[in-house]
Design a protein around this nucleic acid. Sequence first.
DNA 1: TTAATTAAGATTAATAAGGTCTTTTTTATC
DNA 2: GATAAAAAAGACCTTATTAATCTTAATTAA
Lengths: 137, 137
Amino acid sequence: MQLTRKTEYAVRTLLELVSRPWGELVQTCEIAETKDIPEPFLNKTIRDLARAGFVETRRGKMGGVRLIKPGDSFTMADVVETIEGPLAINPCLRDSYSCINKSSCSVRQFLMESQARFVEHLNSKTFAELIGQDCEK
Amino acid sequence: MQLTRKTEYAVRTLLELVSRPWGELVQTCEIAETKDIPEPFLNKTIRDLARAGFVETRRGKMGGVRLIKPGDSFTMADVVETIEGPLAINPCLRDSYSCINKSSCSVRQFLMESQARFVEHLNSKTFAELIGQDCEK
DNA sequence: TTAATTAAGATTAATAAGGTCTTTTTTATC
DNA sequence: GATAAAAAAGACCTTATTAATCTTAATTAA
């Protein structure tokens, strides 16, 4: 019952990018260093963020990564779902889960609401709003 | 980011016991069968519930398990914490986690609140209240 | 005494998470 | 062009966690 480290790394990366001037290109090795993330793993994480439209990358000499989604246009929930896929705090909340009682089960309904409260809060602040101090290391 | 199957099994077991007359002793093989839980795994789960004071077991012929905590005195959050230990949706929310910024980190603070909303909802209904229809299989 | 039942915990199997490595492609610069 | 620096892609490996099984012991009713 925990977010993955990959999500944590994605969050750190986006915090770093949001805190920089818009449009700035940053080398991944620099992010890896300052945010204490294993570089090859960070590369994969950044690829996920790129595919999802948060950042764009530039290869070759002087390459790097830059934000293309404004920091006030996405939330923690967006990042979590980008990295981990649709949230389901219990197997029975997955679309693919089959159970005779699925639709009528009061426990499932209850867990669905619990999850909704959680996601609701994750959506209550944009990344731009989150940045006051940020969490390194 | 998901509750474990063991928690799911504990929940099913408690739902079964809460729905029965107070004091009734039920054989674990019966619960395993009706709730579709691998029996040896259920035994371990029941041991956890016994150690935490939810149920009491009785060995030998005519043995079984019975509820000793009234269904209106515990919630989903209690069961989750019993089976999985203290909830922490992100590593930085664990007591043991060390980070220079731990106390001042706004992201950590935010996640802590998100978790609190979740737990608050898990605590909003007792097991007795949850039982209207229950979720088998 | 016997058979039925749970306790305890060692062991194994399956899955997922976390991380590394190698090769390829792209790009700026000489 | 040639070269070096950077990210892309994905195969691969390692470790941790989860899930399940199995064996032996203890307990209890009959």
